[in-house]
Computed example of a mutant assay.
Amino acid sequence: MVRHFGDLIKKETGSTALDYIQSRLIDEAKSKMFDHAKSISDVATELGFKYQQHFTRLFKQKVGMTPNEFRNLN
């Protein structure tokens, strides 16, 4: 029997596929923000966001602070 990606992710992690992908995306964003030579806009673009505002909104929703706030703490 063939399983769908979402079913496999749910079984292995307990998260939905969307939550899993967003979590991985945010982890990658956090890593990229340690490079202070890159702007937040650069990080957003590298991660596939067309608009920085969409990246910032998702980041704040998942982390509880804006990308700038996160960068300033680290």
Score class of each variant (00 low, 15 high):
24 R>V: 11
45 T>E: 13
36 H>C: 08
56 T>G: 05
40 I>M: 10
48 G>E: 11
41 S>K: 08
51 Y>H: 12
46 E>H: 08
52 Q>P: 03
28 E>V: 10
33 M>C: 06
16 T>G: 04
27 D>R: 06
50 K>R: 15
17 A>P: 01
23 S>Y: 04
43 V>R: 00
51 Y>E: 13
20 Y>I: 00
47 L>F: 10
37 A>G: 12
19 D>P: 00
44 A>W: 01
30 K>P: 03
48 G>Y: 10
36 H>Y: 12
59 F>W: 03
37 A>F: 09
58 L>C: 05
38 K>D: 06
54 H>G: 07
39 S>N: 09
57 R>M: 06
54 H>R: 13
59 F>Q: 02
49 F>E: 02
13 T>D: 05
50 K>A: 15
26 I>T: 07
34 F>D: 10
18 L>I: 07
33 M>S: 04
50 K>E: 15
29 A>V: 03
31 S>Q: 12
51 Y>L: 10
44 A>E: 03
55 F>H: 02
21 I>D: 01
39 S>M: 13
46 E>G: 07
17 A>V: 00
48 G>C: 11
55 F>M: 08
22 Q>W: 00
28 E>W: 09
38 K>S: 08
14 G>E: 11
53 Q>F: 09
41 S>A: 15
38 K>C: 05
34 F>H: 14
59 F>E: 02
59 F>A: 03
41 S>G: 08
28 E>R: 15
46 E>Y: 12
15 S>H: 12
38 K>Y: 11
56 T>P: 01
48 G>T: 07
54 H>V: 09
13 T>C: 05
47 L>Q: 07
22 Q>S: 02
39 S>R: 14
21 I>C: 05
40 I>V: 15
20 Y>F: 03
57 R>D: 11
36 H>F: 12
28 E>M: 14
40 I>P: 01
55 F>T: 01
47 L>V: 13
25 L>I: 07
44 A>F: 06
45 T>N: 08
34 F>T: 11
23 S>K: 10
29 A>P: 02
25 L>D: 02
19 D>E: 14
48 G>V: 08
25 L>T: 12
17 A>Q: 01
31 S>G: 10
22 Q>E: 14
47 L>T: 07
39 S>Y: 09
46 E>I: 09
27 D>I: 04
37 A>P: 01
42 D>P: 01
35 D>R: 10
43 V>T: 06
39 S>T: 15
58 L>I: 08
45 T>Q: 11
51 Y>M: 08
41 S>T: 13
27 D>A: 14
60 K>L: 10
56 T>A: 14
